[in-house]
């Protein structure tokens, strides 16, 4: 029995670069027909290198950009922002966490206001209750109530990313798109954020689409893995299937290129070096 919360079928996105006076317009196929399902409460990791279309995919899932063709269905409801305005229900269903915690928080907005904004705009929660919810959420993501009145520049990168995650789940979304949420963070902070994401997933039964270029992170967090290469999904399967038995050449190259930090590999390298 499958309980797919997100169904994506043959999703395409083209970018047309405007031609000059003498050059014809060019079409760039950023995403070339991608299909996948994500089950409720699970994590799909989308892996690929820069320019493979994974961020374009994230923008389409979060209704920032409209797809050129194909369909997205969230919890049985089709999402089509071409057809009209994004409704509140649609917006509440999906939220996103960006890669760069330094750019994703408004520098002139206090943390409390950051967290309350989604409630203010989408619900009719009274101010006092909004405040309590925001405080509770701060604690949930490992911050303190006194952080409520501070500005983003008073926080470290990891703390800002916690705030960004808190903002994203204020509306209790069904689906959370994480666009490289830990790649701008230090290793030790990365571990904390990954743990936080795992905790939140358990608590709220969240579904993640986790976009990353880092295979070791993906291996740690994903249930399903999709590898993208030049706009196409070249590999799609469960984590173990993809990591243990990659089919596509690109996936194999990717695995081979990932640096290995285990003792056996170091020994092998040093042996090869002294032999040479």
């Amino acid at each position: 029995m499958s309980d797919a919360i997100l169904k994506v079928r043959d999703l395409k996105r083209d970018y047309v670069t405007k031609g000059g006076m003498f050059t014809p317009p060019r079409v760039l196929h950023a995403v070339k027909g991608v299909s996948f399902d994500v089950e409720r409460g699970s994590t799909l990791a989308v892996v690929g290198e820069s320019g493979c279309g994974k961020s374009t995919l994230a923008r389409m899932l979060t209704m920032i950009d409209a797809p050129t063709s194909g369909s997205i269905e969230i919890d049985g409801a089709p999402i089509d922002i071409n057809a009209g305005k994004v409704t509140r229900e649609m917006r509440q269903a999906v939220q996103i966490v960006f890669q760069n915690p330094y750019g994703s928080l408004n520098p002139r907005q206090k943390i409390g206001a950051v967290l309350e904004e989604p409630l203010l705009l989408n619900t009719s929660t009274p101010a006092a209750e909004r405040r309590d919810l925001a405080m509770a959420m701060l604690e949930k993501v490992g911050l303190k109530p006194e952080h409520y009145g501070r500005y983003p520049h008073m926080f470290s990168g990891g703390q800002r990313q916690r705030v960004a995650i808190a903002r994203a789940i204020m509306l209790k979304p069904k689906l959370l798109v994480l666009d490289e949420p830990v790649s701008a963070l230090d290793l030790s902070v990365q571990a904390q954020i990954l743990n936080l994401l795992a905790d939140l997933q358990d608590e709220f039964n969240l579904t993640y689409v986790f976009i990353s270029h880092d295979l070791s992170v993906v291996r740690y967090i994903a249930d399903q893995v999709m590898v993208m290469y030049f706009g196409e999904a070249v590999e799609y399967g469960t984590r173990d299937a993809v990591f243990d038995n990659p089919q596509h050449d690109y996936t194999k190259t990717l695995f081979a290129a990932t640096p290995r930090a285990d003792v056996a590999s170091i020994k092998a390298r040093l042996a090869a070096k002294s032999a040479a």
Partner: peptide
């Protein structure tokens, strides 16, 4: 085009806001 503007738009902010 900064991320925080996109985030505010996703949170449901209209053009004027």
């Amino acid at each position: 085009n900064r991320d925080y503007v996109v985030a505010a738009r996703l949170a449901g902010a209209g053009n004027l806001r």
